[in-house]
């Protein structure tokens, strides 16, 4: 398990845990992020992490991305 901010572009990951208060997690769920959801890291070059979630591109600030813990699939 590692923070999303450490994943490389092209990697397929599964969300394991989102750190933060109820409000933060709620907000993430509304945007489609919850444990068990699969993401593809599209871009991550030191700036925001851009992921593919449910077919759309969502940018996640580096700070938030370091609080999303994922496992890398293969």
């Amino acid at each position: 398990m590692c923070p999303l901010s450490m994943c490389a572009p092209g990697e397929r990951v599964v969300i394991q845990r989102i750190a933060g208060g109820w409000g933060v997690r709620r907000r993430m769920v509304d945007m489609g992020f919850y444990p068990g959801e699969r993401l593809v890291v599209v871009n991550s070059s030191g700036g925001p992490v851009i992921v593919d979630v449910k077919g759309t591109r969502v940018g996640i600030g580096r700070n938030m991305a370091s609080k999303i813990f994922v496992t890398i699939e293969r």
Binding site: G20, V24, R27, M28, M31, F33, P48, I50, T56, R57, V58, G59, I60, G61, N63, M64, K67
Partner: peptide, 11 residues
């Protein structure tokens, strides 16, 4: 604390 930045990026 600050709130997380999560935004949809339309193509």
């Amino acid at each position: 604390e600050t709130t997380p930045l999560v935004m949809e990026l339309p193509p």
